[in-house]
Write a protein that binds this DNA or RNA. Structure first.
Ligand SMILES: [Mn+2]
Ligand SMILES: [Mn+2]
Ligand SMILES: [Zn+2]
Ligand SMILES: [Zn+2]
Lengths: 145, 145
DNA sequence: ATTGATATTGAAAACCATTTTCAATACATA
DNA sequence: TATGTATTGAAAATGGTTTTCAATATCAAT
């Protein structure tokens, strides 16, 4: 996975007339090895440790670049931060988000996806992408009141 | 509808130890008579015409108040603005949003709602609210390329 | 390898929707 | 009508993100 992602980025950059840089590779490496749904600042802090020279703006720029290259998905939940997650291929999933502890659970549901298409069809609408987020309390947070 | 909403607001304010003001009533009136899914600035501009003295901050504050009072729903689509819509009662709907012209189509789908509950149950999750947005092209925008 | 054109970087400033501050004013209660 | 305080408008502050800019790094052409 790891080496392949770096190659994927290189190919995208070359194809766009952009340049490969050590910063971009380093940020990508840390991004992939870190957990999912990271904000720019969270990633910046993780990148800083092994690569202290890297700047804040470069992390922001690289995350946007990864999204454009198809290597990351950009998510805006209701916490005011843009979050990114590594995207293996063309997989898709939606989210359960705990409003108390911030836990994020991922799920896929074919039937919901199909019904969304039905809704779109009925409204002469062509869906490009969608967002389904369920906010509430995770199992743990229900127990602890 | 109109007079009732003003009364509803008054009751909420009284119950919270807050005060009724002419600004709040004026903003609510314009809010209800304007279209749905308005941003604070859009509402501010509409309010300015009949009530030039009203300030920007008051419109922001009143919209948040209306949401707390249950008179408005707060929506954050992907355009960077918080939008509000008048909420008659406890109705609920989701949205189709055209990425080209910005048109917003509302829909309800019982089966999707039910399946969401299934997903939540399977994950020991208690849903408080949810967001389902389908982004793409409306009928018109598909025709015009 | 060296050059040269230019893409990229880090630091700081700018951006921009929204929130907060604060002194003046309006509301509700006695 | 007086009084305590919630609310207002204007301006400043906030905070995540983007942009600016001079210095540096990349890479294709020598
Ligand atoms: Mn996810
Ligand atoms: Mn709506
Ligand atoms: Zn939780
Ligand atoms: Zn459209």
């Amino acid at each position: 996975m790891r080496k392949n992602a770096v190659e994927q980025l290189s190919e995208y950059l070359a194809g766009q007339g952009l340049r490969s840089t050590t910063q971009r590779d380093q940020i990508l490496q840390v991004f992939i090895s870190a957990g999912r749904h990271l904000s720019a600042e969270e990633l910046y802090l993780r990148v800083k440790k092994p690569h202290p020279g890297i700047g804040y703006a470069t992390v922001y720029r690289t995350l946007k670049l990864l999204a454009e290259a198809g290597l990351a998905d950009e998510r805006r939940f209701e916490d005011g931060f843009t979050r990114y997650e590594y995207k293996a291929s063309d997989d898709h999933h939606d989210h359960l988000i705990c409003t108390k502890c911030g836990a994020i659970i991922e799920f896929e549901n074919e039937r919901i996806e199909a019904l969304q298409q039905d809704v779109a069809r009925k409204n002469h609408f062509l869906v490009q992408n969608h967002k389904l987020e369920l906010y509430g309390l995770c199992g743990n947070c229900q127990k602890n009141r």
